[in-house]
Design a protein around this nucleic acid. Structure first.
Lengths: 230, 230
DNA sequence: TAGATTGTTAATCGATTAACAATC
DNA sequence: TAGATTGTTAATCGATTAACAATC
């Protein structure tokens, strides 16, 4: 019952949320799946199908109320509750995350950074304290931690992830370039593999170039044929 | 002819590449699709299908030569050529990218950071110079730029992206939280939307909790039934 | 040669799109 | 009421898995 909603659908929800947020800012009150589909460059059918996985948020003959739909998608994505995040690894990436104020607007609050570099001990990033990793257990007893972001080198990620899970953290935002090998089940992991993303870009660049080259060759052939005819 | 290979397949290629690299480091000489499928937690069928989009890299009765397959996938992903990257936005994220040495191992070299903050002018990150955005055009005439990473605030992303495209850069690695609106076609864009990723994590956390709650309730019911019987 | 394992075709499954009756 | 647009069912398309003949 309540068959699982596919991750393909889930991945699209934040994008809907973003567009609806923009419409809200622009003061738009209502929008039809068709209008939205044009803006977002997807089919209206997909929008309606996606939304109806979660319930009927629209009204025949009217469309969707932007404010209402926006807040409903927020609820679906769990944004009405605050999420406390710790970042394991206070290197550049970790500090970049702590500095990124947009997460806060969505209710994701970074409450602490952890590292092993003693030089960082006691310093802060945008008011967020950097602590030593061996203070983690103590910190966990006095703070509610919902999500741990892993931004440390990949060779230390596995044991640390398992240590975090033991502390009761069941959501990991993994920036380390490996697939975590977790002892315990039912931990939610979201991977951000930047080099994978870069390689995908690289592949698509290459394809793009190849297509160009083909087109160029075709043009050349046509020109040669023209010349022959003259 | 040569029907397009789906992005679903492309997205998996870097992961194959990563696992093969690890096997190579471990000195493993050959591997069957079945062995690899166990390691990677995918089906052997998928591995063979994916690879055969690009050609027959294996040998019946033997499997795949790790070294060979690794290098072939590297070629497919365009890793045998160097890619020069500039980063537009030398904030924390931009600097984090410049500091991340792993990209270099894959042939992605960050050759310059650009920002509008005059305090950053003349400074460097890991030897990479930070320049002012108005020096961009000049820099482009003297350097080959393959990829531009956008890490600046989203309201400046669109015009800058179009400015980059005009300079002949046709690959954009977009970290700004919007869908770029590009005037010119045939630009390859790879989006990294960190807040989207975080929202997906949030959704999955919520689902996970709900399932737990259900299981817990079931257990409670069972216990109550037991008690009644006694 | 016999055994193993690929490459590839066929079957299944899931996701997207189209169509339209329901209804505001 | 007539027009618009949803929610939903049906049709199509694509991706994944299974099966097996080809072949090393």
């Amino acid at each position: 019952m309540g068959k699982e909603i596919s991750q393909a659908v889930i991945r699209r929800m934040p994008r809907y949320y973003r567009y609806l947020g923009e419409l809200l800012d622009e003061g738009v009150e209502r929008i039809s799946s068709n209008e939205l589909s044009v803006k977002m460059k997807v089919t209206a059918s997909q929008i309606r199908q996606d939304l109806n996985n979660f319930g009927g948020f629209g009204q025949q003959g009217y469309g969707y109320n932007v404010q209402y739909l926006y807040s409903e998608i927020g609820k679906i994505l769990g944004l009405e509750q605050q999420h406390n995040i710790i970042v394991a690894g206070a290197g550049n990436l970790g500090q970049a995350l702590a500095n990124y104020s947009n997460f806060e607007k969505l209710g994701f609050i970074i409450i602490g950074l952890f590292d092993i570099n003693p030089n960082l001990k006691g310093t802060t990033v945008r008011g967020v304290p950097i602590m030593m990793l061996d203070e983690l257990e103590e910190f966990a007893t006095t703070h509610k931690i919902d999500i741990a972001a892993l931004t440390m080198p990949k060779d230390t990620a596995d044991p640390l992830a398992n240590r975090l899970v033991k502390l009761g953290i069941h959501a990991i935002w993994n920036f380390a370039h490996l697939d975590l090998d977790l002892v315990e089940q039912d931990v939610v992991v979201e991977n951000v593999h930047l080099s994978d993303s870069l390689m995908q870009l690289s592949y698509n660049m290459l394809q793009n170039q190849k297509e160009h080259h083909k087109e160029y060759q075709k043009e050349q052939q046509l020109e040669q044929q023209k010349e022959k005819k003259l």
